[in-house]
Amino acid sequence: MEINIVLEELQKQNKTVYKNVFDRFYKELVIYANNFLFDQQASEDVVQDVFISLWENAQTIDIKTSLKAYLFAMVRNRCLNYLKSIKITDDLNLIDLNSMIILDEDLDLISEEEKSIVYNHILKVIDTFPVSMQEVFKLKFIENFSYNEIADELNISVNTVKTQLQRAKTKISQSLVVILALFSIRP
């Protein structure tokens, strides 16, 4: 369904379209939220709040990219607000890395072929990491371990975990800047 038609129907309070949007994105959004919060119930609550907001504010919503990107951005922002409310900060900006790796939200404007190129590029960069950094990275972003769980699993300090993830983020970010810039230069 075209985004304009979906938005128009949501603005008309079309319950069938709303239910279709809910059914299409709910599980994926909860999984995404849980990558920030590591709390299933809180993740479900955040996503439900997003859908309530979508219903209540449909008249004023202005989506520039896609409904999917909009919903994921809403969930991300609410997760960050939730984390702030419980006094958890992300000094290393690892949440941004998490969303970049887990979700192609910022990549909605590039083709599937280009997304595949970016994904394969990230995998190649990860392969260049030292073994210890690869272990930390995979436990965090593939196994969804918390910092403490990674530290316990690898018998290292939480600060070492954070340092390894920061270094990984820097390496990935530096390599992605070049490849994403190439996509934006095309005619």
Rank of each mutant, 00 (worst) to 15 (best):
S53H: 15
L109W: 05
D127E: 12
D91G: 10
V21M: 08
I142G: 14
E114D: 09
L29Q: 04
L37K: 01
M100T: 15
N144E: 07
Y119W: 11
A33Q: 01
L54I: 09
F145I: 01
K15I: 07
Q59V: 01
S132M: 10
R78T: 09
I101V: 15
E105I: 15
A58M: 05
N34S: 03
L139M: 05
E44Y: 03
L94N: 05
D49V: 01
L92Y: 00
Q48S: 14
L54A: 08
A58E: 04
L97D: 04
F141W: 05
D91T: 14
S111A: 13
T16M: 13
R78K: 13
D49L: 02
N57L: 09
S85L: 00
V50T: 05
A42L: 02
N98G: 06
E143L: 04
T16P: 04
E28H: 11
Y18W: 05
V47A: 04
K87Q: 05
I95K: 08
N98I: 04
S99P: 03
A58Y: 08
F72D: 05
Q48G: 13
F38M: 01
E56Y: 05
D108N: 13
Y70S: 06
D96Q: 07
E135L: 06
Q134H: 10
I150D: 00
A73E: 11
K68W: 08
D106V: 01
I52M: 15
Y26K: 10
I86N: 03
E28M: 06
L54M: 12
K68P: 13
K84L: 05
Y32I: 00
N93F: 07
Q59I: 11
I122Q: 00
N93A: 07
Q13W: 00
L123Q: 14
S53V: 02
L109D: 14
F137W: 01
L54K: 09
L97V: 05
N148Y: 09
D90G: 06
E28N: 12
K87S: 02
L29M: 08
S111H: 09
